[in-house]
Design a binder for these strands. Structure first.
Lengths: 328, 328
DNA sequence: CTGAAAGCGCTTACAG
DNA sequence: CTGAAAGCGCTTACAG
């Protein structure tokens, strides 16, 4: 059942059916009523594909993220989807694993479908968005990067001041009398390096530079556990562990509890992201809220205005906030 | 840059360009080489929209789920997306909140785009997929429901035997000497009712019918905490709490730990889903693995064969498995 | 207010 | 092996 069938049955031209469909007010009430009746009778649905071919837009955007199974990405993707849906766009989801070739594959696929815009979610895109083909693909359509800045025309950015975020955790711990802080670096993206720099800088500022130690591992529960055990088994004193992710912090906390180390009595622990993980821990994890929801909403606003008003690329920065739990 | 531009520049017809693009072997090597060179030179990308208009398929499927922020849905959606992506389909994500009107809105939207199939993820779809418009929309395209059965032609099902799943938890607890079990029902979908029935049935079978009590609440951490406190404050003895979701169980566990109740010493706790939440808890939660990944893969297989081979609807059932942690 | 016609960018019989 | 032409289902000037 297409627009020709409707037109024939209503005794009008396809142009008139199209006008009714698109609520143009250049149709007489009588004609409109007749067409609408036929439309309803067949519960006719216009083809978005045919419409897209003409209008050059499928009203679709793509989210390229790392892995939706991590709560922080899930939250961000959720909000982006919800907001775009309210604006009448459908959302393609792409879990890229942060893998450059996979990103290329997804970009080719969604660009073939002429998406109206792309949201990149994850600091990892800072590292993988280089190279000729990558850049030429990313130039074809408005883009916004959550948590990072792309050196491309037409690419907007929502930055999160992660350096300040970790500094908040350090200041908080120092103000509560902690002096021997360790940082567990669990990722190696731009954002993760910023966090680590924020740790060192805040320690320096507090006059505790030499006491600030960094341990490098990965962002899993097990790695968090192991890192905490390594720290406690070391020669240096430790009264606080600052982590780059809630998941790693949950691991550190778990190891300390199992080994009979009092938290926060002997050692304080802080996480990052203010995710469900933080709240699930017992005691509840002190963490840093990096405002995933707000970042997502800003992404949608920036990309939305690039798409609809042809606006130019913009950059906004978000300030994280400390969320004091019971582990500090 | 469209197929006409390429054709002109290569000195051939658009039909020949199309043949090269689609790897038809009815093109002479020389012509093919010339066309491919022009194609590469302009990094030409064919329009999936125009192609879709002709072929009647955009190679896109939609996932309608409740809320991707819940780990179980995130895991399922992740696997579905990954598998369909490998098969050359893009995936539209729709967070419906389990709300019937929202589901209708999303269905209309994705059907306009002529998706090749729809995956419904969540037992809640059992309750909301009725009514004339809903049913007529769901009939337009192959569908598969994860965790439920739709009474519709063309709708495949992947069922999870949740009744048996909870019974596994009960049997496990009873075999370890527990006698006074409580069940926290935290949802009211078909699946949730099945779980509760599984609890009562397993208690009956164990000859502990009268000792099996059910408490009704909702699936949040706070509600789990409150429910556990209510149970412990009640007159009836309690040595185990069986929960319908890991999140609720995490709440119950948290309340018990805070109130100084030994787990599993005095009271055992079990969850459901084998999610990250279970593993994060300390002690690690005993839970039931309802095989989200396997369910997702089966969904893709069933829907994939309906789409590609025009296969008919099928139903498969998955058996859950107990995952013993340290809370039982 | 309405319709005939062109065009969006492809694929696919059909002829040759 | 190759091309001219029709068709997919719409929207949008253009005329009237």
């Amino acid at each position: 059942m297409n627009i020709y069938d409707i037109a024939r049955e209503a005794g009008v031209s396809i142009a008139t059916v199209s006008r009714v469909l698109n609520h143009k007010n250049t149709v007489s009430p009588a004609t409109r009523a007749r067409v609408e009746q036929v439309l309803a009778q067949h519960s006719y649905t216009p083809s978005a594909i045919a419409r897209g071919l003409v209008s050059k837009s499928m009203r679709t955007v793509a989210i390229l993220t790392v892995d939706i199974r991590f709560p922080h990405y899930a939250n961000t993707a959720y909000t982006i989807e919800r907001e775009f849906s309210h604006r009448g766009y459908d959302v393609l989801l792409c879990n890229t694993g942060g893998n450059r070739d996979t990103v290329l594959r997804y970009l080719r696929a969604v660009l073939k479908k002429q998406v109206d815009g792309i949201v990149l979610v994850g600091s990892v895109f800072n590292e993988i968005c280089h190279g000729e083909e990558m850049r030429s693909l990313l130039c074809r359509v408005p883009i916004v990067l959550a948590n990072g800045k792309l050196d491309l025309p037409g690419a907007s950015s929502v930055l999160v001041d992660d350096r300040a975020g970790v500094a908040l955790a350090v200041d908080h711990l120092v103000s509560r009398g902690r002096r021997h802080l360790f940082y567990i670096q669990d990722k190696y993206t731009t954002s993760a390096e910023d966090k680590c720099a924020g740790f060192l800088q805040a320690m320096e500022r507090a006059g505790l530079g030499p006491a600030g130690r960094v341990v490098r591992t990965h962002d899993t529960l097990e790695d968090g556990m192991q890192a905490a055990r390594d720290i406690l088994a070391g020669d240096l004193p430790c009264d606080a562990i600052v982590c780059g992710e809630d998941l790693t912090a949950a691991g550190a906390l778990k190891a300390l509890l199992r080994d009979g180390v009092a938290v926060p009595g002997q050692v304080a622990v802080t996480g990052y992201n203010n995710s469900a993980y933080a709240y699930l821990c017992e005691p509840v994890l002190t963490t840093v809220d990096n405002k995933g929801e707000q970042a997502a909403q800003l992404c949608v606003q920036l990309l939305g205005s690039c798409i609809e008003k042809g606006g130019s690329a913009a950059t906004v920065t978000i300030q994280p906030e400390l969320v004091a739990g019971k582990t500090s």
